[in-house]
Every structure is written in structure tokens, then in C-alpha cells.
């Protein structure tokens, strides 16, 4: 359970980073319109940071979460 949650956090964290970096934040390519100046989803950078935070939070979860059944 704890390991699962930890792994989940890591996966979700990296997932958020990747998704935000490549798909939610401002479009990639040479900017040629105002669209390139705005994230495609509002607060996409925050989502990226959230991803980074989740990944490292995994360690905290891993250590702090009590063993199953205890």
C-alpha cells in the first residue's frame, strides 16, 4: 500500500511534469502568434511544480506512512 502510494506519487508527479511541460504549458515551436505566450491550460506551470513536489513528496510519504497493519 505504502509502496504503491509512493510509486503512484512518483508516477503521477512525473506524469504531471511531462504533461504540463509538453501539453499544458505554452505551445512549443517558434512563436508566431499570441497563443505561444499563454499556457494552454491556466496555471500549467503550477501543475509542473506540483509534479516536482509530488515526486519528492513520495519520499516523505514512503517514510512517514505507517506500515500496513500497524
Amino acid at each position: 500500500m505504502r509502496t504503491t502510494l509512493t510509486l503512484l506519487l512518483i508516477v503521477v508527479g512525473f506524469g504531471l511534469q511531462v504533461v504540463s511541460y509538453f501539453f499544458l504549458a505554452a505551445p512549443w515551436g517558434i512563436p508566431s502568434s499570441p497563443a505561444y505566450s499563454n499556457p494552454r491550460v491556466p496555471f500549467a506551470p503550477t501543475i509542473f511544480i506540483l509534479g516536482v513536489v509530488l515526486v519528492f513528496l513520495a519520499a516523505v510519504v514512503y517514510e512517514l506512512l505507517p506500515e500496513r497493519g500497524q
Binding site: 504549458a25 505554452a26 499556457p39 491556466p42 496555471f43 506551470p45 503550477t46 509542473f48 511544480i49 516536482v52
Partner: peptide
């Protein structure tokens, strides 16, 4: 604005997020 708009294309993005 960094939380709202930060663009990964800017090298500054790394400084800020990473």
C-alpha cells in the same frame, strides 16, 4: 505570473521551477 504563465521554452523556467 510565474505560476500563471511560466513558459518552459524560457531557460528561466528551469531556474524558477527546477
Amino acid at each position: 505570473n510565474l505560476f500563471r504563465y511560466a513558459r518552459p521554452q524560457s531557460p528561466f523556467f528551469g531556474t524558477f521551477t527546477l
